[in-house]
Design a protein around this nucleic acid. Structure first.
Length: 658
RNA sequence: GCCGACGUAGCUCAAUUGGCAGAGCAAUCGCCUUGUAAGCGAUAGGUUAGGGGUUCAAGUCCCCUCGUCGGCUCCA
């Protein structure tokens, strides 16, 4: 590298001279293990990409988001190579990096077995050990077609190039916007070509730069994401910048499994899904009922304070109502089939809004009544496809905390503003604190109805309301409901997973379809704007989110049993019964464990039920008129006078603390 | 709905690969029990998801139905 400098590049913010032919890796002095790629003028590139005069070159580290994507994409290549070595008939689909890992789709005669996955993973580790080089090569479309003649799916992707919007998710990693490139995997010593794939890149310099990789599962997936296409076999894997990072990820998965609300629901005796009822239909047990009742009561109180009026509507209706609302033509297949009697089709309601519209329309409305906020815990039934039901988060019958707000166009900005603040405040009260907002807008599809100007205005109003909150705002183009744009509140839970919580939707359509009117101050008749909003989404779903967020250890105000009295010996039971009675008189949910079990066993049982407070009493406590606290975390506070203990419980419940 | 895996006592899991359905926990009964996560004993609990088939013999093999799980698609 003693040649006369010929190029000037920018490195770490300072300009530097390098010889012509210098690669990004050389410029960065990259080791290929921690710095595994480069960003050249903002574009990710391989380390052996030659820099040009005036380039800005930055390192990409393997542990960064971008670095992990490159690592995972490279791991997907390695997996595909292993698969084709072991299953020469396998045809390649696509293989992009995804959150926490990667996948690759294959067309094979037989689905992969867990045993196959083990063999594939073993072969992958051999490839990693070999240290094959990833080498980039530009090809013409025709050459690519010739080289990939045996890969029908790749040929299809080449044909799609340019029409990127049409391509399946992930296909852009194969064929970018520019010319086609193929990556060759080359044996480091023999120079032998081991494998190749159509790919935009970039990649790790060699397979050896994969520090930790593991195959997770296989499953079928439709080619290019369409039900109409054949199903390919997808293998999911994960790859990380270190063994420790992989271990941490696996521990996270284990923790998520422990928190699974379906599992906790059974362990804590909260709810169940009896087969006799049918798929996706839950029964809440007494303990789950307590949690649910507390959730509802608090919500109801806050809604009352916020000016909502409570309505009740039936569970079934003549078909005509849902035709008027516009739901039946569009969404008949996700409603339960109708029951027919008295010459009419009756449907189970899948949404509450049409019924609320009827409440609005029941009499003449004045502008003085607006905004009119109608609230209902409305139970709806949706015929979810059999493969999608999932515990309480995707059920076939569930109760929405549903409200519809009718207001004037002029009132809408203020209403949205206070609504969003109200929603976030309430979610915080339930213990969620980490949010971002998503704004879902109209897409190209013809499923969206209504005037573009109305959409634009509503979208802008939503955006302004969102921006007043000091939260990140993510755009979701095409994600709107067919009748209007929406804001949704996304919450991160205790272990960092995000859940879509509340939605706020603007609807210009239904007021028109239902001929909703109010009389304005000047005596004219006008059509109100309608806002749909649910905070929990569904009570069941929110229940599940809280259950997983708290890992079953609900804060005292929600806990089914807030305290358990545990006697040291039988003779202390009457004393604890008396303490418990005093606490119950204060509205606290307290039980005494008077069973034949030993005190240690009782503690274990209460601990497993995640009861917030254990109140122990033996001779010491009885003589002092006290109880000894044991908290869920194992800590203790002994000899607390009963009056203080009651005050402590009351305060914890009142403040909605642990 | 599609692909795959799975379904044994309330729960978690056995059953030597086609040869007598069993254990721990939970439940019930009894004995015992003074300090922070399992005291001891006994009893009861099953048409092996349901139905059909192959076989001298089926929890085990085959087919159908139902359900669950993991994905795909979908989520107004």
């Amino acid at each position: 590298m003693s040649a006369v400098p010929e190029l000037r590049i920018t490195l770490a913010g300072t300009e530097r001279a390098v010889a012509a032919g210098t690669t990004a890796g050389q410029a960065l002095d990259a080791d290929g293990r921690t710095v595994i790629a480069a960003r050249v003028n903002g574009e990710p590139r391989d380390l052996d990409h030659e820099v040009a005069d005036g380039d800005t070159v930055e390192p990409i580290e393997i542990g960064s988001d971008e670095g992990r994507s490159i690592l995972r994409h490279s791991a997907a290549h390695i997996m595909a190579q292993a698969v084709q070595e072991l299953f020469p008939e396998a045809k390649l689909g696509i293989g992009p990096p995804i959150d926490n890992g990667f996948y690759y789709d294959f067309d094979v005669a037989e689905p992969f077995t867990p045993d196959d996955l083990k063999r594939i993973e073993k072969r992958m580790l051999e490839i990693v050990k070999q240290g094959q080089r990833f080498e980039r090569r530009a090809v013409s479309d025709d050459d690519a077609r010739a080289e990939l003649a045996a890969e029908p799916y790749k040929l299809e992707l080449i044909g799609l190039k340019g029409g990127a919007g049409d391509a399946a998710e992930g296909a852009s990693v194969e064929v970018g916007a520019g010319g086609l490139t193929i990556y060759d995997n080359v044996h480091p010593r023999t120079g032998e070509l081991c494998w190749k794939d159509l790919c935009r890149g970039p990649h790790l310099p060699t397979t050896r730069a994969v520090p930790a990789v593991k195959l997770m599962r296989s499953a079928a997936a439709y080619w290019r994401g369409s039900e109409k296409n054949p199903q390919l076999q997808r293998i999911y894997g994960t790859a990380w910048e270190s063994r420790d990072a992989l271990k941490e990820y696996l521990a996270f998965l284990e923790e998520a499994e422990k928190r699974d609300h379906r599992k906790l629901g059974a362990e804590l005796d909260l709810f169940s899904f009896p087969d006799e009822l049918g798929s996706g239909l839950a029964v809440f047990h007494p303990k789950g009922g307590v949690v649910r009742k507390e959730m509802e009561q608090y919500s109801r109180r806050r809604h009352e304070e916020a000016g909502y009026e409570f309505v009740n509507t039936p569970h079934i209706s003549k078909a005509k109502l849902f035709e008027t609302s516009g739901h039946l033509p569009n969404y008949a297949e996700s409603m339960f089939p109708p029951m027919e009697f008295e010459g009419q089709d009756y449907y189970l309601k899948a949404m509450n809004c049409p019924m609320h519209n009827l409440v609005f329309r029941a009499r003449g409305r004045s502008y003085r009544e607006l905004p009119l906020r109608l609230f209902e815990f409305g139970t709806v039934y949706r015929y979810e496809k059999s493969g999608v039901v999932h515990g309480l988060t995707r059920a076939r019958g569930f109760t929405q905390d549903d409200a519809h707000i009718y207001c004037t166009t002029e009132q809408m900005p203020d209403e949205l503003d206070t609504l969003l603040t109200f929603v976030l405040d309430l979610l915080r009260d339930y213990g969620l604190s980490d949010f971002y907002l998503e704004l879902s807008t109209r897409g190209d599809s013809d499923k969206f109805i209504g005037e573009p100007e109305e959409w634009a205005e509503a979208t802008e109003t939503l955006r302004q309301a969102a921006q007043k909150q000091d939260l990140d705002l993510v755009m979701d183009p095409g994600g709107a409901a067919y009748y209007g744009p929406k804001i949704s509140v996304q919450a991160r839970d205790a272990i960092g997973r995000t859940w879509q919580m509340s939605t706020i939707q603007v609807d210009f359509q239904q007021p028109k379809r239902f001929n909703l009117e109010y009389t304005a101050a000047d005596g004219s008749r006008r059509t109100p704007v309608m806002l749909h909003r649910a905070l929990f989404g569904s009570i069941e779903r929110f229940f599940a989110v809280l259950l997983e967020h708290y890992a079953g250890a609900f804060p005292a105000w929600l806990a089914p049993v807030q305290a358990v009295g545990i006697p040291i010996a039988d003779e202390h039971v009457p004393y604890l019964n008396d303490v418990a009675a005093r606490m119950r008189a204060e509205g606290l949910r307290v039980e005494v464990d008077a069973s034949d079990d030993r005190m240690q066993k009782k503690i274990r049982n209460a601990q497993k039920q995640k009861v917030p407070f254990m109140l122990l009493a033996g001779d010491d406590d009885v003589s002092k008129g006290a109880v000894s606290f044991r908290y869920r975390d194992g800590s203790q506070n002994n000899g607390v006078p009963v009056a203080d203990a009651i005050a402590e419980l009351r305060a914890a419940v009142h403040d909605r603390r642990g």
